[in-house]
Write a protein that binds this DNA or RNA. Structure first.
Lengths: 333, 333
DNA sequence: ATTCATTGCTAAAACGTTTAATCAATATAT
DNA sequence: ATATATTGATTAAACGTTTTAGCAATGAAT
């Protein structure tokens, strides 16, 4: 027999599938199955190598106990790590996690959301792509629980957990000011996602408060051409009248590209220029000089997202929950 | 209505579910549904925002069109990247991919295999954990298609795709010999997986052929304590009578740990010691000196695995296929 | 000796699909 | 005018579960 079902066990034992189901789900008490029969069923099930068909169960019960995790870039260690913690934590609650990678493509995000939705996942945790908002809206319309993580859309009223980007950004900028920098550049992605806006706001407010603001110091990077854009941004910045003495890189990949660029141009960190980065990278461990960075509490973020999502799934909460977790600036070495 | 089914559409239109199913699956020709009715159905389906329930479909059809991808460490860029390519390629064939991370834990691998098996995935691509062999055997016993990737067990007759570890290892070792190294150390994991054995064999054969072999040069590392083990291995190696002048790191994490250690101990690469690494790392881009490494063709490996798996699923091939892909040594800069 | 509870089990429906079998009506061929 | 194809639909079973409702037998209580 290719695959053993509950029916096969029942047949073999000459009993009903009800009893088998009851026992195999540990409901023998409520189901009033005799200990004798229960034991017989368990024995036979083991003997026949029975494995339940979760598809059928989910279909019948109307829930799959699966969480769909949609990540914009799984090869980014930050997200890979986050995925790991999410999976780990969700399992404790009896949920398994399906990871899908959108590679920053809106179209792929649409596909993956649809595929998972049609597979009846109970809810989604999503690191959305830049224009993934309609997909999110569709999910909300269908009353499917969603939690965004790391990124969010300012216009949509949906649960999200992020770091406190504004404060983190202020902290990083202030750090550079404290180090004596007067012309502090800021490099960020040119997208409209909420977290980027917040990081920018943090930088702007701090610089304005300090009377150091200059619009030429802000450089936007296209995520499809990070290396080129960063390269020309750096060249631009160094041709300004007031020589820049600090750069705040507002995202992981921009940081790496930026530092690589500075090294190539033989611009010495921190003598000629000071930097501070959003997100830690393994690369920092291998540099001669320490690189200050903002570290996002990736585990806490992941676990919070899982908790919120599960509460939504179980209908313990109805309204969207917006959680901001403080991020730490690592600058002491 | 919370969720629209084919039945709802049929009811609304006063027709049978068969017609709806036929049309929505593009089988109106074979099913002899009139163009008029077909159009009506499609219109209504769109209007009602219908989405098929893949669970039910899979249950009925006995296949899910899902590939289970089980990875030992998703936060390892090598595997993250591989996952990406596998997902990408599988989609072209109409399969979606569920990624599960085992974090190198045998128990978790067992769990994930079971969970996915019970969700009726059509087949598995697995980067197995060290002692995951029984799980593989169980899958084989149940006639569930499996392809191992990157790692494999010498004792089990199951499809796998790997790099040609033996030749790659010979190449790397020969590179160091060509550079004039006389005392070439080798650092590998202390596990019994086939790919490690092959890498060791490559090193051994090459060193013996060159008359340079010395058992003290081989250091085994426990993957649970890479940094410590590498640290003491390096100390050991440098206290040997014949001063070592080359190290071949047989795996990605060992390489990074090793290089970090050399930097900390102020041992200059390549003046005092030459190294060669298995797997590329982003870190190499940031080092003053170029690091030679063996690059595995991760995309080709992933795609090959998908192809083999799908052929097995479709029963186009019955016997296990063992594919070895050549790896490239990057040593010219 | 009758009622009532309890115990141990089963029948059957339901979840949302797909698909083989069948049927009635119309068209085509003889 | 009759036999035969073809067209356009439907009925009902099946996939593997869970679960409600109910049945029969036993035990306890009056």
């Amino acid at each position: 027999m290719s695959h053993i079902s509950i029916k096969d066990i029942a047949q073999e034992l000459g009993i009903s599938t009800t009893s088998v189901s009851l026992v195999l789900n540990g409901k023998e008490k409520e189901g009033r199955v005799s200990k004798k029969l229960a034991d017989k069923i368990r024995k036979k099930a083991k003997e026949m190598n029975y494995e339940p068909n979760t598809l059928a169960r989910s279909l019948r019960m109307g829930k799959s106990n699966i969480i769909g995790l949609i990540v914009a870039d799984i090869s980014n260690p930050f997200f890979a790590n986050m995925s790991f913690h999410i999976q780990e934590y969700a399992e404790k609650y009896g949920y398994s996690v399906i990871i899908a990678n959108t590679n920053e493509s809106d179209l792929k995000m649409e596909n993956m959301v649809n595929i998972l939705k049609n597979r009846q996942v109970d809810g989604f945790i999503i690191v959305p792509t830049e224009s993934g908002n309609e997909q999110i809206n569709d999910l909300l319309k269908r009353k499917i629980p969603v939690v965004l993580i790391d990124r969010y859309f300012s216009g949509i009223n949906v649960s999200h957990v992020t770091v406190n980007n504004y404060l983190a950004s202020k902290g990083a900028t202030n750090y550079l000011i404290d180090q004596g920098c007067k012309n502090i550049a800021f490099m960020l992605y040119n997208n409209q996602l909420g977290h980027m806006k917040e990081r920018k706001r943090g930088y702007l407010d701090t610089l304005k408060d300090a009377g150091l603001f200059n619009p030429q110091l802000i450089k936007e990077i296209n995520h499809l051409a990070v290396d080129q854009d960063v390269e020309s941004a750096v060249t631009d910045l160094f041709s300004l009248g007031n020589k820049i003495d600090g750069i705040f890189f507002a995202a992981g990949a921009i940081s790496l590209s930026g530092i690589k660029c500075l090294i190539n141009k033989q611009i010495k960190i921190p003598d000629e220029i000071r930097v501070v980065c959003f997100d830690k990278s393994e690369v920092f461990d291998f540099m001669q000089i320490p690189i200050p960075y903002i570290q996002q509490p990736v585990m806490e973020m992941g676990e919070t997202a899982v908790e919120i999502l599960i509460k939504q799934i179980k209908k313990e909460i109805a309204d969207p929950l917006l959680v901001e977790i403080p991020a730490e600036l690592h600058s002491e070495f």
